[in-house]
């Protein structure tokens, strides 16, 4: 009997404690932010485009947020490992990460990658690299039309190189196939360097590549078509797909994101800091010079952008799976 009494007492104490904890008044909604160093995680190798952009932003961020910014790498799985880490982090704004489109949309569509697109809140998209189609300078294909005609004549005989499968490059190839009604032989590579080496050496017939890589190697390539609305400023001689009757716009967007659940005022603060950098004329000029399109897409706009792309890609991906 005594024992039961003790148990009841013990349980009630536990219950009271739990209740007390639960009913503790919520913390004031707008704690000052940031009060300590912020980790800016890059899910790609050091020295890559995302890293270079983060390194460029680092001093400006430190100035405008007056806190130290630590750049950290969580590399693997084409970014998946890092983003899985991001959505597991505390949503307090002290752990932010570079995010890429269409990666964060396509990866969760392919398999269980440890994160979902909806779990990442994009803060700002600051850089775009439109994709383009190019062949080696000595290739027999002089125009997009000749290229497509050749593919029509001999389906699956023309090799097109790109980075990875289920990636922006792969999707662009598929979309071109669909629009033009042809079939290519898509060869995936592990990144921009091996992909460009292969096309320069003539090991693949063509590549779908990022604009900055096309700028880099423009002397050794024949640039057939750019998948953007207008001609690319650094490559004025390169026609767009649209001009040649193929309505296709494909790009890779880079930005920064936080885990879902991050308070709005924190997102706002980060948004202001990143937008300020994205609009800095020196940085804009630098980006343009290097073959990128500078963007300054705020949080609200970024969110709709991601949602719109998610819907489009869900449709497209049905065809691959």
């Amino acid at each position: 009997m005594k024992k039961t009494w003790l148990v009841v007492l013990g349980l009630s104490i536990v219950a009271v404690v739990i209740a007390a904890c639960a009913s503790e008044p919520p913390k004031p909604t707008e704690a000052p932010y940031p009060t300590k160093q912020i980790t800016y995680m890059i899910p790609f190798d050091p020295g890559g485009q995302s890293d270079r952009e983060a390194r460029r932003q680092q001093p400006f961020l430190e100035k405008s947020l007056s806190q130290k910014i630590v750049i950290d790498y969580k590399v693997g799985g084409g970014g998946a490992v890092g983003w899985a880490e991001l959505v597991r982090a505390k949503p307090d704004g002290y752990y932010i990460a570079g995010v890429n489109l269409p990666h964060i949309i396509l990866q969760p569509l392919q398999q269980d990658t440890g994160y979902k697109t909806e779990q990442i809140v994009p803060v700002v998209f600051f850089q775009r690299t439109p994709l383009g189609l190019a062949v080696p300078a000595n290739s027999p294909y002089k125009s997009l039309k000749e290229f497509i005609d050749a593919a029509k004549a001999k389906p699956e005989s023309i090799t097109v190189g790109g980075s990875g499968t289920f990636s922006g490059h792969h999707i662009a190839t598929l979309r071109l196939q669909k629009i033009a009604g042809v079939k290519f032989n898509y060869v995936p590579f592990t990144g921009a360097a091996p992909q460009m080496t292969a096309v320069l050496g003539g090991h693949v017939n063509a590549v779908i590549a990022n604009s900055d890589d096309l700028v880099k190697y423009k002397d050794q390539l024949r640039l057939l078509a750019m998948a953007d609305a207008d001609r690319f400023p650094l490559l004025p001689e390169m026609p767009t797909f649209k001009e040649q009757g193929v309505d296709m716009i494909e790009a890779i967007d880079r930005g920064v994101g936080v885990p879902v659940g991050t308070p709005d005022y924190v997102v706002k603060k980060l948004e202001t800091a990143f937008l300020e950098i994205a609009k800095n004329p020196d940085i804009v000029a630098d980006m343009k010079k290097q073959g990128f399109v500078p963007l300054a897409m705020g949080a609200a706009e970024s969110k709709t952008h991601v949602e719109k792309m998610l819907a489009t890609y869900k449709e497209l991906v049905k065809d691959i799976k």
């Binding site: 693997g76 799985g77 490992v81 398999q111 289920f166 995936p188």
Partner: peptide
Amino acid sequence: IGLDPLTGVARLTFGQPLLMAG
């Protein structure tokens, strides 16, 4: 172990996210 370098398919990870990075 980890994601296949080209197709990005998870291999021998036994469902562990940590092993996805290889």
